[in-house]
Design a protein around this nucleic acid. Structure first.
Ligand SMILES: [Mn+2]
Ligand SMILES: [Mn+2]
Ligand SMILES: [Mn+2]
Ligand SMILES: [Mn+2]
Lengths: 223, 223
DNA sequence: TTTTATTTTTAGATTTGTCTAAAATAATAT
DNA sequence: ATATTATTTTAGACAAATCTAAAAATAAAA
């Protein structure tokens, strides 16, 4: 098994994630944005990743991740999410505190370590943000969740995840006590701006479309 | 709190360990040997560490670690040893398997993470190899152990640690089932080469001086 | 106290990942 | 179709950590 640098791993992860939001190939500038670096640096790295056959790269035509590259990316994501479960379930961190630590832990190389951690955590299928955890072969269960913004008034939903992972957004949700596992019922949907009034344990509050769009849910009672 | 690179941290740790075996100041070549690098590289790094006031460095006169540098080193060692406890106690790794993984984990930066890990492990005072774990302030309990080689025939001892941490040595001990916690009684000491015949649970075997010197023990019954 | 050997430092390259500025290409507008 | 704008790539430079080979300093031996 080939070894990759931490930087290469981070680029691959970013490209993998972008591939899931983009129909065609991933372009240089979107990678630059998501990595907080310049397009020039990205181009340099793309050549290196292409040499290692982790991506298919054609000058000026963007990038497609290869099966090989995808496997590497999924392994990093697997480690990231298992560590996030460990940090919340075992060390009792809040779900909005674990991402930064997992960004470091995901690069610890031992596959045996992660195998044992997975077993110790009793083979969790989803991380604290509702994202699926790939198994050793890279397969991941699809969490068939919907956005709260497409829910109906008068119906109860259980939060299963989020569509946006920024610390700012997670802390915003935490302020209302909103996190995976919590039950929310939609009291009213405003025609004008698609904002909604929701009820959580007797408390009522207002959610903008920007927020409700990024809260992922299932109908209450459906596991 | 200043940030240090992983490389700087590794150099500091090496210098700290060498300081405890050397009476005077630590010289360039011993650092090079212990870091598996060249003296030229070491000299470069020493300048950098001196700039950050982590060591006192005088050209051609070797190096003394400062209080500040010692604190950094002790924090890395603290993390290393706590992760080793986690790997053996929680994930059930053998004591001869954990060092390499701990070498990576020790650089994960969050101090809050290590504080919670320590609490979760119930504040262990020693790692799986019998080495003391520094507390948050850098203080460490002294394990007043002796070398098995200075023990007496007919006396029972409990293994508390090792004086040599190489994988080769640890695996050699593992072959005989020797590890911290195990009780050993010295059956006979050979005058000629100071090797010894020891008994562990009915089984008898021969230990060379080279081996017995690096097994650290306490008299059986004395906690 | 010279001479010789060892250790340490400097000088100059190399690799990895980054940057800015300029050139090349592609996409959009007129 | 040509001009304008946006995107991407190249060129050249830089910082970190490393290396080899040569020079300088110290230690040991004669
Ligand atoms: Mn995360
Ligand atoms: Mn997550
Ligand atoms: Mn160790
Ligand atoms: Mn240890």
């Amino acid at each position: 098994m080939q070894q990759h640098t931490e930087t290469e791993e981070n680029y691959l992860k970013a490209i993998y994630h972008l591939s899931n939001v983009t129909i065609s190939s991933v372009n240089t500038s979107s990678i630059a944005t998501s990595m907080s670096t310049t397009s020039a640096s990205v181009t340099d790295m793309l050549k290196k990743l292409a040499d290692k056959e982790l991506i298919n790269y054609e000058k000026y035509k963007g990038v497609k991740i290869t099966r090989k590259g995808e496997k590497v990316a999924l392994n990093i994501i697997r480690k990231h999410r298992l560590w996030e479960v460990f940090l919340t379930k075992v060390l009792k961190f809040e779900w909005d505190e674990v991402h930064t630590m997992a960004e470091e832990l995901e690069h610890v190389s031992s596959d045996e370590l992660i195998k044992r951690l997975e077993a110790y955590l009793d083979f969790p299928k989803f991380d604290p943000h509702g994202d699926p955890i790939p198994d050793q072969t890279g397969k991941l269960e699809i969490n068939d969740q919907m956005s709260l913004s497409s829910g109906d008034a008068g119906v109860k939903y259980t939060i299963t995840g989020v569509g946006e992972h920024s610390s700012a957004f997670l802390k915003h949700l935490a302020k209302y006590g909103l996190k995976p596992g919590i039950t929310v019922s939609i009291a009213e949907i405003m025609e004008f701006d698609k904002s909604m009034l929701v009820k959580v344990n007797k408390e009522k509050f207002h959610l903008s479309l920007e927020v409700s769009k990024n809260i992922l849910v299932k109908k209450y009672g459906i596991i």
